[in-house]
């Protein structure tokens, strides 16, 4: 059994939010629910400063805080490492939303579209979401499993790879089996550039980031001031 993980290379990422859109399109999430969202942070001081984009989503933690607090067992870490919510079991208490240290969970409050009426697309897309439950990124489980059934390799074959990964226009996202030491994700995690959000937090995210790698050059000042 694989242990799915993801690596996001912040040196390649330009913060375009293409992943956020790809996720919306693949999973048809309703308004306000962005399983993947792209935040932006500035680091450094003028002129030695850089704008760092930071795509955030469920980290599919090895020790998920969300799972610990879920009273119904709706949140569950599967064998393949995907942390998923069974919307049939979720009673919408939202304990997990508070417990998740990464802000990855969203409560689906009411069936509402982006406009006054649901568009044709929205009617089609929102079917899979159940009002009154908590939702979040599921590593495109359906897509990955459908791909596996067809004998495809997640992270390599497009049809078996999460939408945010294969669509990224800087080729900055990677998906694969962290238990396979030869997978791209494993190699990247071992590259020395990888880090997890909230370092030292016991949650142990399975979504890793690669450092932006930009040197904060002194922005055109020879004296480095």
């Amino acid at each position: 059994m694989a242990r799915w993980g993801m690596v996001i290379d912040l040196a390649r990422c330009i913060g375009c939010a293409g992943c956020q859109m790809a996720c919306k399109a693949e999973n048809g999430t309703p308004p306000g629910i962005t399983w993947c969202r792209v935040e932006v942070k500035d680091i450094g001081n003028f002129p030695a400063v850089r704008r760092i984009p930071l795509p955030v989503q469920c980290m599919h933690c090895r020790e998920p805080e969300c799972e610990k607090v879920c009273p119904t067992g709706a949140t569950e870490k599967t064998e393949s490492g995907i942390v998923r919510v069974d919307s049939e079991l979720c009673m919408g208490c939202r304990a997990c939303v508070l417990a998740c240290p990464y802000g990855a969970r969203y409560f689906y409050e009411e069936k509402k579209g982006y406009y006054e009426t649901l568009s044709l697309f929205e009617e089609l897309a929102y079917k899979r979401h159940r009002v009154g439950t908590v939702t979040k990124c599921d590593f495109c489980q359906e897509r990955v499993e459908r791909g596996l059934d067809q004998g495809l390799k997640p992270g390599v074959d497009r049809e078996a790879t999460p939408a945010c990964v294969f669509n990224c226009m800087t080729k900055g996202r990677f998906f694969g089996d962290l238990d396979d030491p030869r997978s791209t994700v494993s190699l990247l995690v071992a590259s020395g550039r990888a880090f997890q959000l909230l370092p030292g937090h016991p949650s142990d995210p399975q979504v890793y980031y690669l450092t932006p790698g930009t040197t904060l050059s002194a922005g055109g000042r020879e004296d480095g001031k």
């Binding site: 919306k24 399109a25 497009r158 294969f166």
Partner: peptide
């Protein structure tokens, strides 16, 4: 095979 955010969002 890849799209910028606007391309994917065209559906809206």
């Amino acid at each position: 095979g890849r799209l910028c955010p606007k391309g994917t969002a065209g559906i809206m």
